[in-house]
Design a protein around this nucleic acid. Structure first.
Length: 573
DNA sequence: GCCGTTTTCGGCCCGACTGTTTTCAGTCG
């Protein structure tokens, strides 16, 4: 499957062309890139079956881009891109990750100061060279310095969404082998942490050899870092590492417990084992030198006096103490989710129609979905005004009548700088519900920013606040908000806070969710899908909710559509 | 570079914001 790689290459071409200050071509390359990454078919198969014609049928791909795609399929390279790279030998990928830096600035920094990569850039900020460039100044230099610091903090960490597809592919390859008895993810991926350093997979088998051969033979491998008798590490073309460990079935449970972590959680467990005169390690739980548990994780926990602690809780945030007391949380699961209320369609930034989203919703077994497209302020996303919403309502009504699934109409209104919404109440009153979220002016001081969100919470028509902290993992810090004040106001107003499932957002954060659970503030898990496939991102949000100790009762989209309608009509706020 | 009931050339989603300027370029979504 070369779709992803080809899309990346085309995106890179667009980046370089933007540096060249060429108009419109970058747009064409990006459009082609995006329709290729949204293709469900394998582009190589299209090429094999239909040849060049098949490639040119792809939306946004004409003769020239088709040439480059064909070249890439045949040779693994695009000469055009290689030439562009040679002309501007800069680490564009990483430099573009610096918030506030775009292609034009990068070009200027390269030409004037010979900045080629992040460390050059950092040096230039420290020596004050940037402030003296025309068009740049003190503040820009300071912003760049801070943006680099921010990037560095998360170095080497990967988003769940970034590691997902390769990890699943490797997992299912290994799972199919006849030698594989049991298999599981371990480490931070199993704990559903928002970013992971690498991916850990654990297999139980009598013989490890075939399993390890299969592992290092995965098509996405860039380099085999190590390959031994019971373990192996690989680096993937996508950039992250995967570790595999193979153990006997008598140690599978203890190895899984050990390799799942977290370190802090495990230290506490081992301490408890010691207190009980036992010893816990990756090979088992031992008493008087005899293995008393190891095959099943559950048995280890139960012999230590705890009920089974779900992996998402294992962060030493009080779970050991709670489970020692016999507490057993019924964390929210996929099955509990009856629908969701934040998705976009072709009306604004989405890739699919109302009907297509509804169909996928049905396939996912949902009772209902809610369409929440952007409103007026977001011009780039073609934000809807009152009249557009009327037209959309007619379409939703029509599709709703056709289908089993219930389709609600909401919107995602923008919270403007002063805390007001970007669309009149009159238009909002006609909707089933209103989501409000921040999409602009991310830099305000804490007092102002908090007042801004609080004002939106108090708006009588607002039911849900989307992605409340506004952060983009690894890219943008959270808004400077007094979260306690937000929680208090949300509770008072009966406003629901969103757990946004986009792997880039995962917002609320796990610690915020835990706080909401403690304060009994209702939350909703939404995908914020802009494409039918992204509806399945909800699993990331569920993982996040579980990390925050959320149970079914804390999550409003575990409610039936009737209960939800009541909630829409309630005027607590 | 792509596209097409304004169709084979001329238009391409565009307004707000920031930091730099003194009227605007670059970035963001």
């Amino acid at each position: 499957m070369l779709n992803k790689e080809i899309a990346q290459q085309l995106d890179k071409i667009a980046d370089y062309l933007e540096m060249e200050e060429i108009d419109y071509k970058p747009f064409a390359y990006r459009r082609a890139s995006s329709s290729i990454s949204e293709l469900s078919e394998d582009i190589e198969e299209i090429y094999e079956e239909k040849g060049r014609e098949g490639i040119e049928e792809i939306n946004g791909v004409g003769k020239n881009i088709a040439d480059k795609i064909e070249e890439f399929i045949l040779t693994g390279e695009m000469e055009y891109l290689e030439n562009l790279k040679a002309k501007f030998p800069v680490d564009l990928d990483n430099l573009l990750r610096v918030e506030g830096l775009g292609p034009k600035s990068i070009k200027k920094l390269f030409k004037e100061l010979n900045v080629r990569n992040l460390s050059d850039l950092e040096k230039a900020t420290k020596e004050g060279e940037i402030a003296s460039l025309s068009g740049f100044g003190e503040k820009t230099e300071k912003n760049i310095r801070e943006a680099i610091e921010f990037l560095k903090k998360d170095e080497g960490k990967w988003l769940l969404g970034e590691v997902f597809s390769d990890s699943e592919a490797i997992f299912s390859r290994l799972e199919k082998l006849k030698e594989t008895e049991k298999i599981s993810f371990a480490g931070s991926l199993r704990r559903k942490k928002e970013t992971v350093g690498d991916v850990d997979i654990l297999v139980s088998a009598k013989k490890a050899e075939e399993i390890i051969d299969c592992f290092v033979g995965y098509e996405g491998v860039l380099k085999t870092l190590s390959k031994g008798e019971t373990r192996s590490s690989i680096r993937l073309k996508s950039g992250f590492n995967v570790d595999l460990r193979v153990v006997g079935k008598n140690s599978f449970g203890s190895a899984l417990q050990y390799f799942t972590g977290s370190k802090e959680h495990n230290i506490k467990l081992r301490r408890i084992a010691n207190e009980k005169g036992m010893k816990l390690n990756e090979y088992g739980l031992f008493k008087d030198g005899r293995r008393v548990a190891g095959r099943e994780e559950e048995k280890i926990y139960s012999l230590l006096g705890l009920s089974f602690v779900p992996p998402e809780l294992r962060e030493d945030r009080g779970e050991v103490e709670a489970y020692l007391k016999g507490e057993e949380l019924e964390l929210v699961t996929q099955k509990d989710i009856k629908g969701e209320l934040h998705m976009h369609t072709t009306w604004t930034g989405g890739a699919q129609t109302v009907e297509e989203m509804a169909k996928r919703g049905e396939e996912l077994g949902y009772e209902y979905i809610g369409i929440a497209d952007h409103t007026e302020f977001l011009r780039i996303e073609n934000g809807l005004n009152a009249e557009d919403l009327e037209k959309q309502r007619a379409e939703i009504k029509e599709v709703d009548a056709m289908m089993k699934i219930k389709i609600f109409q909401g919107c995602e209104a923008n919270i403007l700088k002063d805390g007001s919404l970007d669309i009149d109440d009159e238009a909002l009153e006609k909707l089933d519900y209103v989501i409000a979220g921040i999409h602009s002016n991310f830099k305000m001081d804490r007092e102002e920013m908090t007042a801004r969100v609080v004002k939106a919470i108090k708006h009588p028509l607002v039911k849900i606040i989307s992605h409340p902290t506004g952060r983009l993992i690894k890219r943008r810090e959270s808004l400077d908000l007094d979260m306690v004040a937000i929680f208090n106001e949300a509770k008072k107003a009966g406003v629901v806070l969103e757990i946004n499932s986009s792997p880039h957002r995962l917002d609320l954060r796990d610690t915020d969710i835990k706080r909401c659970v403690e304060m009994n503030i209702p939350m909703i898990i939404n995908s914020d899908a802009h494409h039918v496939d992204q509806l399945e991102n909800i699993s990331f949000g569920i993982g996040q909710a579980r990390r925050g100790w959320a149970e079914k009762k804390n999550i409003i989209n575990s409610k039936s559509k009737e209960e939800l309608k009541k909630f829409f009509k309630s005027d607590e706020n």
